[in-house]
Design a protein around this nucleic acid. Structure first.
Length: 589
RNA sequence: CGGGGCGUAGCUCAGCUUGGUAGAGCGCCGCGUUUGGGACGCGGAGGCCGCAGGUUCAAAUCCUGUCGCCCCGACCA
């Protein structure tokens, strides 16, 4: 049955609440798709739910096509599982934790690797049971430090998460095969949803190599930074993006004698520059400073040096050091170990055999450098690599350890230049390896009856982000409101009688029934409102086609058909009543 | 968690500096006139001025605390 506007709940608004700052958020509120209950928590109203369900159904169909089987796992998860995999710690405050009446602690699932792995352990015993791909579409909870942009970063959201289990990485039934299959399914999903997307390489994790890709919808409101080569053959998240070869020169001559400068209370790069300008009346640019970051891996200190205006990429540093894990050092611990945090310079490595020193090519240069003096409240100027570090007996390794920037050379070494854009992450595929099966001690018997940990892949899609990005996309909205892709639109057609009575009401009901019989979702605006209000609302909620029933057209046995995207002209076209259903069904294919 | 800002009608906001009967526009209800792109007139409803203390004869307004929300930043499978 077609829905009558008067019976459903579509609270449209002329103005968006002041809270909303990005287009999709404002329009989802104004069009009555969602209602905010608290920070990062939203009710899906009828229109929003219908659009969400359309997206879910597309995801479901394509996951099924890709060989996935649907299950539904609990939101409430025993904290012990999270402790066993070390992720209670790793997830930290982002994990919602609740205590039940018996004092047992549970996590509200932000993702389900632990749970699916436990499930695998319960029922999958032999290589004969593999491979297996299971998925669910479910509400996830993350205690985001900063929810924002409406449903783009909320604390409670809909996610499709899939997990596959395998004995091997390669070959038939291997992880890579499932990965490629789901990768292809994702392409179909986003195509069907009508959202433009780009696939970028993402941080690979334990397996390394090409083990992770993100599906991004290009948008200025995206929170992820993507770099693309202008040659079109490379795209990566900034977390992962490699930079092509850059010249280095550690042997350059000093610019002067090393000189200490008293820089009280200036631990940061900006602080020092400001201090130089205000107190010393000397101009100092951030790119003339060396940023020296202290990281720790086990008993070894790993020090990364990048130019003051660059950002250290911890994953790159970890790889350069050949380590499995690495983190920024605890400040107190580092101080106790003799690092003047905030005032560290590369020459701190001199005479210490518990320190590995790495420098980014852009920082491995001659010229005028200011850096920490390895003494609180002091910096040095005229720092020189050869004199201060190499001749002093410390070893330094030059490596790509900083985040890529707009204009950097492409790692493909083909003269390509990296360009930075922003994107909304709507999907992520990831080869996990045996991280979880190992941590939870899940084993299956292989062909020779050896007990082995299966390897896993995980594959996520942010379903409500699909909706937001459909609105954020180029052409997803105009001054009048949303313009839905037909596949996601809550209704494909809205029938707008100028007055819902007499012949107009009859024709409206009849057309609605015929369209519904053909599988088209129809909304009838039966409200007693002025035509202008109905038109504005129809535009705002973004239904792809509007059939307008007015006296003049009806007198000619016709209706007006107007496409929301303007594709059949600003005024639409006149279509005979007995032809409009066929024409619409055709257009909606 | 650090910095900044905001909580007054369903929404957008004024009023606060200089304490003295709580306001506008939109929305809502009633009546009438209207009826092809967010109509008009008249009449109305609706607020513990986020909450709790304090100062004062008197607090939306000043002070303290607290909660909520937003923005920027650090952080982030």
């Amino acid at each position: 049955m077609a829905t009558k506007w008067s019976t459903t709940l579509i609270p449209t608004a002329r103005q968006a609440p002041a809270d909303a700052v990005v287009p999709s958020h404002q329009l989802m509120l104004r069009a009555g798709l969602i209602h905010k209950l608290g920070s990062g928590v939203y009710t899906y109203l009828p229109l929003g739910l219908r659009a969400l369900q359309k997206a879910m159904q597309i995801v479901r169909e394509e996951m099924d096509n890709a060989g996935g089987v649907e299950i539904l796992m609990p939101t409430l998860q025993p904290i012990e599982l999270w402790e066993q995999t070390g992720r209670r710690e790793a997830y930290g405050d982002n994990l919602f934790v609740v205590k039940d009446r018996h004092g047992r602690i549970q996590a509200l699932g932000p993702t389900h690797e632990e749970i699916i792995t436990e499930l695998c352990g319960a029922y999958i015993e032999s290589y004969r049971d593999l491979p297996k791909t299971l998925y669910q579409i479910q509400t996830k909870f993350r205690d985001e430090f900063r929810p924002r942009f409406g449903v783009l970063r909320s604390r409670e959201f809909q996610m499709k998460d899939a997990y596959s289990f395998h004995l091997n990485l390669d070959g038939p039934g291997g992880l890579s095969e499932a990965y490629d299959t789901i990768y292809a399914a994702y392409c179909r999903i986003f195509e069907r949803c009508g959202v433009p997307y780009e696939i970028v390489e993402a941080e690979a994790g334990p397996i390394g190599g090409n083990a992770s890709h993100e599906f991004m919808v290009p948008s200025p409101t995206g929170e992820d930074f993507i770099l693309k080569s202008d040659k079109g053959n490379y795209a990566a998240n900034v977390e992962k993006c490699e930079i092509g070869p850059r010249p280095q020169n550690l042997e350059a001559d000093p610019t002067g004698d090393l000189e200490a400068v008293n820089t009280p209370d200036c631990p940061g790069i900006e602080d020092v520059c400001t201090f130089f300008k205000k107190q010393l009346k000397t101009k100092l640019k951030t790119q003339n400073m060396l940023k020296t970051l202290v990281c720790k891996a086990g008993d070894t200190w790993v020090i990364g040096v990048v130019r003051g205006d660059h950002d250290l990429n911890e994953a790159k540093l970890r790889q350069a050091a050949g380590l499995g894990s690495l983190e920024m050092a605890d400040e107190k611990e580092a101080r106790d170990a003799g690092f003047a945090i905030g005032f560290v310079g590369p020459h701190v490595a001199v005479g210490r055999d518990d320190v590995q020193l790495f420098v980014d090519p852009d920082a491995a240069q001659g010229g005028f450098w200011v850096t920490g003096a390895n003494q609180v409240d002091h910096h040095v100027k005229h720092f020189n690599w050869t004199r201060e570090v190499i001749a002093a007996g410390a070893k330094v390794t030059v490596a790509d350890i900083r985040n890529a920037l707009d204009g950097d050379p492409s790692p493909k070494e083909d003269g390509g230049i990296l360009q930075m854009t922003k994107g909304i992450e709507v999907g992520h595929v990831f080869k996990l390896g045996d991280k979880y099966t190992k941590a939870l001690k899940i084993e299956v018997a292989d062909e020779s009856n050896e007990r082995v940990n299966p390897i896993m892949g995980c594959y996520g899609i942010g379903v409500n982000r699909i909706l937001a990005s459909a609105i954020e996309r180029e052409g997803g909205s105009d001054d009048n409101g949303i313009i839905w892709p037909t596949s996601l639109a809550p209704y494909q057609v809205v029938i707008t009688p100028i007055k819902y009575e007499g012949q107009a009401a009859q024709v409206a009901d009849q057309l609605a029934a015929e369209l519904e019989a053909k599988g088209v979702d129809v909304l009838i605006d039966d409200r007693d409102e002025r035509p202008g209000v109905k038109f504005k609302d129809a535009d705002l909620i973004g239904i792809p086609y509007r059939i307008t029933l007015g006296d003049k057209a009806l007198a000619e046995q016709s209706v007006e058909l107007k496409a929301r995207d303007g594709s059949n002209g600003p005024k639409g076209e006149l279509v005979k009543i007995d032809a409009v259903v066929a024409q619409l069904v055709d257009a909606l294919k």
